[in-house]
Nucleic acid binder design. Structure first.
Length: 461
DNA sequence: TGAAATGTTGGGGCG
DNA sequence: ACGCCCCAACATTTC
C-alpha cells in the first residue's frame, strides 16, 4: 500500500505535517505535484517562473533522500482517481488551501475517496491559525486588524514546527506515471526572465539561508529600516508564498531570537505575518476577494478606465520618479519594496482613478510573490474598500513619499536611469528642473489637482 | 502603514 | 519696558 503526499503550496520538507503523517504510516510514499487548471485564472508569469524553480529544487531535495517528485498535469481529482486505479493506495495526505476553488476540489476529493478504503487527511501547512478557529465575541470574523491580531496572540498558540525527515521510502516504479517538469511549461516564453534570474534563487534551502541572513543582519532596526526601499527587508515573501519556508518556523525562530533584538523589531516582523494571516482569513470568509469590494459602496464608483494611463503606470512612465522606479523594479525583478507598493498602488487608484482590480491583475502577473490572499486583500486596503482599509481621503503624495523614504534619490536613480544626473533638489520633481532630461515623461496628472478630483469623487460615493 | 488646512504658541524684531 | 506683529514650529482638525 502507498501513501500519497499531494504537494501544493508547501514545497518544502521541513515542518511538513502532511509528509510527516505519511511517514508515520510506514508505507512507501508517492510525492506528487499536479499542475491543475481548476482556477478561473492561472498563475502569473513571474509566479510560474518561481514555481518551476521551486519544484525543481524540491525534486532535488527528494532525490537526496533517494525519492523523487512526481509531476502530473490536469484536473487533480481525475488524476488522483486514476492513480488509485493503478496503484494500491492507503492514504492521501495534503496541507490545506483557502481559496474557494481549491477548497471545493479538496472536498470533492475527500468525499469521493470516503467511499473507497483510501483515507484522506489534511493539515494546516500555511497558516499560524486556522481561519475557522478565529472569531470575535459575536462569533463573527474580525474586521479590524489590531483586534484580530490581539485575539490571535492572546487566545491561541502556534504549533511547534517539526524537522525534515532524514529518510523516505519510495518506489522507483512511481516514476513511470510522472511527466517531466519541463512539460508543465511553467517557464515564460518571453525573454523576460533575466532580471528574475539575477534577483532570486527559489527553493527551500535558499529560503532558510535568506531567513538566517535576515535574523543575523536585518531584524535589527527592521521597524525603521523596512520603510526605506534601498535597505533590505526580509525578502521572504515569494518563499512563503510557495511554502518553501513554514510560517510556524519563522514564528518560533523570531521568538527565540527576540533576546538579541529589540522587541519592537520582532513584534513588527511578526505583525507582518499577522497581516498575511488576516488576508487569508478574510479570503476564507470572502471567496470573491479578487473581484468584489468588501465595502459595497465601491461597486458603484466611477472609475476612469483610461488605457493610456494604465499602460503608462505599468511601464513606469507616469512622470513621478518614485512611482516609476517601483514599477520598473517590479518588471525587472518580479518584486517591489513594500513601501513602494503602497505608493504605486495608491497612485493608480487615487491619482489615476483606475479600478484597483486592474492593478491587482498586473501585480498578480508580475510579482514572484503574487499571493491569492495577500494581493487582492492589499489592493482593497489601498483602494479603501477592504478590511481595516486606508480611508478614502488618505492619499499618498508621491513627491513627499519620495523625499521621506528616498531622500537622495538613490532608489530612483537605480531604476530610472534617465534621471541619474538630475540633482538631489529636483530628483522628486524633475519637471521643475531647467535641464530636465528629454527622455523622461512629464507628469501624467498634476498632484494637487488629481488629489482634489479624487477626494470629490470618493466623497460623492 | 498621510497630507493639507487650520489653529496655537512663543521668541524676536521693532516702534 | 511694553505691545504689536511676524512667522516658524508645533498641535489639531479635516479631508
Amino acid at each position: 500500500m502507498v501513501a500519497i503526499v499531494w504537494f501544493r503550496n508547501d514545497l518544502r520538507l521541513t515542518d511538513h505535517l502532511a509528509l510527516d503523517a505519511a511517514l508515520k504510516t510506514g508505507n512507501p510514499i508517492l510525492p506528487i505535484f499536479i499542475y491543475d487548471s481548476i482556477h478561473s485564472r492561472s498563475f502569473g508569469e513571474a509566479s510560474k517562473w518561481w514555481l518551476h524553480h521551486s519544484l525543481s529544487s524540491l525534486k532535488r531535495t527528494l532525490n537526496l533522500l533517494k525519492a523523487d517528485l512526481i509531476f502530473q498535469q490536469g484536473n487533480a481529482f481525475e488524476i488522483l482517481k486514476n492513480i488509485a486505479e493503478q496503484i494500491p493506495l492507503s492514504h492521501i495526505f495534503w496541507n490545506r488551501r483557502y481559496d474557494a476553488e481549491g477548497m471545493q476540489q479538496d472536498i470533492q476529493v475527500k468525499s469521493y475517496f470516503k467511499e473507497t478504503n483510501i483515507i484522506c487527511h489534511s493539515f494546516n501547512g500555511s497558516l499560524l491559525f486556522e481561519p475557522h478557529t478565529i472569531k470575535n465575541k459575536e462569533g463573527k470574523p474580525f474586521k479590524v486588524f489590531s483586534a484580530f491580531w490581539k485575539h490571535c496572540l492572546s487566545q491561541h498558540s502556534v504549533q511547534e514546527p517539526i524537522p525534515a525527515p532524514t529518510h523516505l521510502s519510495f518506489d522507483k516504479k512511481f516514476n513511470e506515471i510522472s511527466h517531466t517538469l519541463d512539460s508543465l511549461e511553467l517557464l515564460p516564453k518571453l525573454g523576460w526572465i533575466k532580471g528574475l534570474e539575477e534577483s532570486w534563487s527559489p527553493g527551500e534551502e535558499n529560503a532558510q539561508k535568506n531567513f538566517d541572513f535576515f535574523l543575523k543582519n536585518s531584524l535589527k532596526n527592521y521597524k525603521k529600516n523596512r520603510d526605506y526601499p534601498t535597505l533590505k527587508t526580509s525578502r521572504l515573501s515569494p518563499y512563503i508564498r510557495r511554502g518553501e519556508i513554514s510560517v510556524r518556523q519563522l514564528w518560533r525562530a523570531i521568538h527565540q531570537h527576540a533576546i538579541f533584538s529589540k522587541e519592537v523589531d520582532s513584534e513588527c516582523f511578526l505583525s507582518e505575518l499577522g497581516w498575511r494571516e488576516f488576508s487569508y482569513h478574510t479570503l476564507f470568509h470572502h471567496p470573491d476577494l479578487e473581484e468584489i469590494p468588501l465595502k459595497k459602496d465601491f461597486e458603484a464608483f466611477p472609475w476612469e478606465k483610461n488605457p493610456n494611463h494604465f499602460d503608462a503606470w505599468t511601464k513606469g512612465l507616469t512622470g513621478y520618479p518614485i512611482v516609476d522606479a517601483g514599477m520598473r523594479e517590479l518588471w525587472r525583478t518580479g518584486y517591489m519594496h513594500n513601501r513602494v507598493r503602497m505608493i504605486t498602488a495608491s497612485f493608480l487608484v487615487k491619482h489615476l482613478l483606475q479600478p484597483w482590480q486592474n492593478g491587482e491583475k498586473w501585480f498578480w502577473d508580475t510579482l514572484v510573490d503574487a499571493d491569492v490572499a495577500s494581493n487582492p486583500f492589499n489592493w482593497q486596503w489601498v483602494a479603501g474598500c477592504g478590511a481595516d482599509a486606508a480611508p478614502y481621503f488618505r492619499i499618498f503624495n508621491p513627491i513627499l513619499q519620495g523625499e521621506k523614504f528616498d531622500p537622495q534619490g538613490e532608489y530612483i536613480r537605480s531604476w530610472v536611469p534617465e534621471l541619474r544626473d538630475v540633482p538631489d533638489d529636483f530628483i522628486h520633481t524633475p519637471w521643475l528642473y531647467e535641464n530636465r532630461p528629454s527622455d523622461y515623461p512629464e507628469p501624467l496628472v498634476h498632484h494637487s489637482k488629481a488629489r482634489e478630483k479624487a477626494l470629490k469623487a470618493f466623497k460623492a460615493m
